[in-house]
Amino acid sequence: MAAFGTVFMPKMALTTFENNQWGQAQTVAADSIQLHPGAHVLHYSSTCFEGLKAFRHSDGSVHLFRMDQNVKRFAQSSRFLSLPAIDEAQVSKMIVDIVAQYAADVPLPPGSMYIRPTHIGTEGAIGKAAAPTLSSMLYVLLSPVGDYFAGGAKALRILLDETGMRCAPHMGMIKSGGNYASALGPILKAKAEVQADQILFCPNGDVQETGAANFLLIDGNEIITKGLDSSFLHGVTRSSILTLAADLGMTISERNLTVRELLERAAKPGVEAALSGTAAVLTPIGTFIHNGKEIKVGSGEAGPTTQKLRQALNDIQWGKAPDTHGWLTKVC
């Protein structure tokens, strides 16, 4: 099977911002865009994106999961990067229309259609290092994907890094490629030196997020995760998991968590830790690596609460459980 996110539908939805207004959305070949080599995005990283999914239900219908939240975050990222303000209604319609066009290609469970709205600055002006682009392009790519964990979810090895940050603090809430690029060097180093799967960035002992996911600590009936601030990405999956956990009667503690407390709790029997994100939903953590030592989390394998919460979210997405929170948008 092809690697996750490497297969694309042949067409995508696209619109451009020129002369202070958005043009009419079009369906174009997915490999058809052209950029001036001086485009703002290529020199000054005026780019943001989103990731959401469409799911096929047993009756054949196709549904988007929490599109409204992704579009709101997309608008926020564009605004914080001084890109032209997006038209949220237009973007939502572009997503619905392009998914409807390829509804027959939405995989059956456990697969889904991964959706990647992207906004980039296109003005050819290399003198604009300290000025925003006046033109931009917005497109919606589709990628049919299988189960992120083909063969089963493997508990991850996570390096706790108290010296670095994933990105600049004021950029944390923005879903921009530069944030992922800034974390890549430390992650590759951690993979090579201690065989870590990811880094959990904990600047000055403050437990934040990994390079591409939010962090949750599960201690008995309590979930502990960092309270929302501008330093890290406000994940839609994180929000969904916390809502479902509260529905199950769990205690949700959104607060600062230190590395010291994390390691003290992780050593207790039955404690679980996980990463949340669109692609993998909820990924178990089996081992923390800190100051040259390895600390097993609980049993070192996926814990029952992690599995239960992941399944609860999947069941809503695939129409196997009631959508009591109004998270699904029916496409067709």
Rank of each mutant, 00 (worst) to 15 (best):
2 A>M: 13
5 G>M: 11
8 F>C: 11
13 A>N: 05
14 L>F: 13
16 T>D: 03
19 N>W: 00
27 T>A: 12
28 V>Q: 11
31 D>N: 15
36 H>G: 11
37 P>V: 10
38 G>V: 01
39 A>L: 02
52 L>C: 04
53 K>G: 06
61 S>M: 02
62 V>M: 00
80 F>D: 15
83 L>P: 03
83 L>A: 04
87 D>V: 06
90 Q>N: 13
90 Q>Y: 04
94 M>N: 04
100 A>E: 14
107 P>L: 06
107 P>F: 02
107 P>W: 01
114 Y>D: 04
115 I>H: 06
120 I>A: 14
120 I>N: 06
121 G>W: 05
124 G>I: 02
125 A>P: 00
125 A>Q: 13
134 L>R: 15
140 V>S: 00
140 V>P: 04
142 L>E: 07
143 S>L: 03
145 V>N: 02
147 D>S: 15
155 A>N: 01
165 M>G: 13
166 R>L: 00
167 C>K: 01
176 S>A: 13
184 L>W: 14
191 K>V: 05
199 I>K: 04
201 F>K: 04
202 C>M: 07
202 C>P: 03
205 G>R: 02
207 V>G: 02
211 G>C: 06
212 A>V: 01
227 G>A: 15
230 S>N: 14
232 F>D: 03
235 G>L: 06
237 T>M: 09
238 R>D: 01
238 R>T: 05
242 L>F: 03
254 E>G: 04
254 E>W: 02
256 N>P: 00
262 L>F: 01
265 R>Y: 08
267 A>V: 10
274 A>P: 02
275 L>C: 07
275 L>E: 01
281 V>M: 05
284 P>K: 06
285 I>H: 03
286 G>P: 07
288 F>Y: 05
295 I>V: 13
297 V>H: 07
304 P>D: 09
306 T>R: 06
306 T>S: 08
307 Q>V: 14
311 Q>M: 12
313 L>C: 10
315 D>L: 08
318 W>I: 12
319 G>Y: 10
321 A>S: 11
323 D>C: 05
323 D>N: 03
325 H>F: 09
325 H>Q: 12
330 K>M: 14
